[in-house]
Structures are given as structure tokens and as C-alpha cells.
Measured scan of single mutants.
Amino acid sequence: NQASVVANQLIPINTALTLAMMRSEVVTPVGIPAEDIPRLVSMQVNRAVPLGTTLMPDMVKGYA
């Protein structure tokens, strides 16, 4: 099963992502692949992401 990127904390809108904000977890539906975590660092979210939410490509500016 593919691990996805999950929010490790509440991430406010327009926040630049850091490693501490993300974790890898096997979830359904599948979100951004966990191997993309290094690429996500310093990218901004375009909405508030609650703790435990799977990051989807449309939630991260410049990812999709």
C-alpha cells in the first residue's frame, strides 16, 4: 500500500510546509505520495489543513 502525506498538526492557510508538519501514513483515499515530502518543504497550503488530514495535490500551491 502506498503511504500518503498526512498533516501532523493544524496547518493554517498560506503556511509554508516544514518536515515537522507532515508524516507518512497509509490512508484511503490516497493523497500526495510520502516520497514527495522533501519536495513539499517550503510549499504553501492554500487552505487550513486540520491535524490528521491527508494532503491532496490541490491543497498545496504549485504542487499539482
Rank of each mutant, 00 (worst) to 15 (best):
A16E: 11
M43R: 08
S4I: 02
N14H: 12
K61W: 08
A64P: 12
V6S: 02
I11Y: 01
P12C: 13
T15N: 05
A20C: 13
V41N: 04
N1Y: 11
V5Y: 00
R39W: 05
V6R: 04
L40K: 00
A34Y: 12
T28K: 03
N1I: 15
P50E: 10
I13C: 05
A34N: 05
Y63R: 04
G31I: 01
V30G: 06
G52W: 07
G31F: 01
M43K: 10
L51I: 11
G62E: 14
I32S: 01
T18M: 11
V26C: 07
K61L: 11
M59G: 03
L40P: 00
V45I: 08
V41G: 03
I13F: 13
S42P: 03
P38S: 11
L51K: 04
V26S: 10
G52E: 06
Q9V: 09
T53S: 10
A3K: 05
P12R: 08
A20R: 10
T53D: 09
P38A: 07
N8M: 07
V41R: 06
M56Y: 05
P29M: 07
R39A: 08
D36S: 07
N1P: 15
R39D: 03
V41C: 04
Q44D: 08
L17W: 00
V30M: 11
E35M: 04
V27Y: 02
I13R: 06
R47C: 06
T18Q: 15
L40T: 02
E35Y: 04
G52C: 07
V26N: 10
V41W: 11
P29K: 05
V5N: 01
T15L: 05
P29R: 03
P50W: 09
P57W: 06
Q44W: 08
D36G: 04
S24C: 03
T54Y: 02
A20I: 15
Y63C: 04
M56I: 06
L51S: 13
T15V: 10
N8V: 11
L10K: 05
A7P: 02
P33V: 14
N46P: 02
K61N: 08
D36E: 14
T28V: 09
I11P: 00
G62Q: 11
A64D: 14
D36C: 07
G52M: 09
N14R: 07
V49Q: 02
V6H: 02
Q2S: 08
V26M: 06
K61S: 11
R47V: 15
V41Q: 15
Q9H: 11
A7M: 04
A3P: 11
T15K: 04
S42C: 06
V60T: 02
V5R: 00
Q9R: 10
A20F: 13
T28L: 04
Y63F: 15
T53G: 13
L17H: 00
I37L: 11
V45F: 00
A7E: 00
T28G: 05
V30I: 09
T18Y: 06
P12M: 10
E25V: 04
S4E: 01
N1W: 07
A34M: 09
Y63E: 05
N46C: 06
V49R: 03
M22N: 00
S24T: 14
R47H: 13
N14F: 14
V5H: 00
D36A: 05
L10F: 10
S4A: 04
G31S: 02
T18A: 14
M59H: 13
A20E: 15
Q44L: 14
A16L: 13
Q2Y: 11
T15Q: 15
T53E: 08
A3R: 04
D36N: 15
N46H: 10
L55R: 00
A48P: 07
N46Y: 06
V45P: 03
V27T: 12
T54E: 02
Q44S: 12
M21C: 03
P33T: 10
K61H: 12
V27L: 06
L51Y: 08
N8D: 08
G31W: 02
R23E: 06
L51C: 05
N46R: 11
R23T: 13
Q2F: 09
V5D: 01
Q44Y: 10
I37Y: 02
L40V: 09
Q9W: 13
I13K: 08
E35W: 06
M56V: 14
V60K: 00
L10T: 14
R47D: 10
Y63I: 06
E35I: 06
L17R: 00
M56W: 05
L17I: 11
K61C: 15
M56E: 06
V49P: 01
A7D: 00
N46I: 15
M43E: 07
L17S: 00
I13E: 14
M21N: 09
V60E: 01
N46E: 08
D58R: 05
S4C: 04
S4W: 02
L19D: 12
R47Q: 12
V6E: 02
P50K: 09
N14K: 04
S24Y: 07
P57L: 05
A48S: 15
V6Y: 02
L40M: 05
V27H: 03
N46M: 10
P12K: 14
L55K: 00
I13W: 05
N14I: 03
G52Y: 05
S42W: 10
G52T: 03
T18V: 11
N8S: 13
V5C: 04
P33K: 07
A34K: 04
K61A: 13
L55G: 01
A7K: 00
P12D: 11
V26E: 15
L55Y: 00
V27N: 04
I37W: 03
L55F: 10
